[in-house]
C-alpha cells in the first residue's frame, strides 16, 4: 500500500531544500577559502582596491558561509532523526546555494566591489568567465532538481 500522505513530510521537503542551500553556500565558501586563498594563492587576503562596502560584504559572507555549514548539518541531522529527509531536495538546495554563492562572489565581490580578483598578473576575462560558468551550471542543475517527485528518505529506501 502506498505510504500515507503525511502533511508534515511535505513541510520537511521545504526544510530539505533550506538545509541544502545552507550547506551549499558554506561548502562553496569553504572551497573558495581553501583552494583559491590557501592552496593556489590566487586570491589575495586583501586587495588595495577594496572599498569599505566590499570589506563589509566580504566579512558578512565569510561569517555567514561557515555558520551556514554548521547550521545546515545540524538541521540535516534533525531531518534524518525525523526520517523526513528528501535527498533530491537537499541536492537541489545544495547545488543552488553553491552556484548562487559562486555567481555572487564572481559578480559582486570580484567585479562590482572589487574585493579581490580571481588571479593576479593574467588576462582576467577567461578566469572570470570560467568562474561564472562554474557557478551558473550547479545553479541551473539545482533549480531543475527542485522539480520532480519529492520522496522522503524513508520511502526511497523502502
Amino acid at each position: 500500500m502506498a505510504p500515507p500522505a503525511d502533511p508534515r513530510a511535505r513541510a520537511l521537503s521545504g526544510r530539505s531544500v533550506g538545509t541544502g542551500v545552507l550547506i551549499g553556500v558554506g561548502v562553496a565558501g569553504f572551497v573558495d577559502e581553501v583552494v583559491f586563498h590557501q592552496l593556489l594563492h590566487w586570491h589575495h587576503f586583501y586587495d588595495r582596491g577594496t572599498s569599505a562596502a566590499g570589506l563589509v560584504s566580504d566579512g558578512l559572507f565569510h561569517a555567514f558561509s561557515w555558520t551556514a555549514v554548521v547550521v545546515g548539518l545540524f538541521v540535516l541531522a534533525d531531518l534524518h532523526r525525523r526520517q523526513a529527509t528528501v535527498p533530491r531536495r537537499v541536492w537541489a538546495g545544495g547545488l543552488t546555494g553553491a552556484g548562487a554563492f559562486q555567481v555572487y562572489d564572481g559578480l559582486v565581490h570580484h567585479k562590482l566591489l572589487q574585493v579581490h580578483q580571481v588571479r593576479y598578473g593574467v588576462d582576467l576575462l577567461p578566469y572570470d568567465v570560467a568562474w561564472l560558468v562554474s557557478g551558473a551550471v550547479p545553479l541551473v542543475v539545482g533549480l531543475l532538481l527542485l522539480r520532480g517527485p519529492a520522496r522522503p528518505l524513508a520511502d526511497v529506501r523502502r
Binding site: 586583501y46 570589506l55 566580504d58 565569510h62 561569517a63 555558520t67 547550521v71
Partner: peptide, 20 residues
C-alpha cells in the same frame, strides 16, 4: 545565530582593516 554572524563579520572586517 544572527548575533554570531554579525560579530564574526565584524571581527573579519576589523582583521582585514588592520591588515590594510
Amino acid at each position: 545565530l544572527v548575533v554570531l554572524v554579525v560579530l564574526a563579520a565584524g571581527h573579519a572586517v576589523l582583521a582585514k582593516t588592520l591588515f590594510a
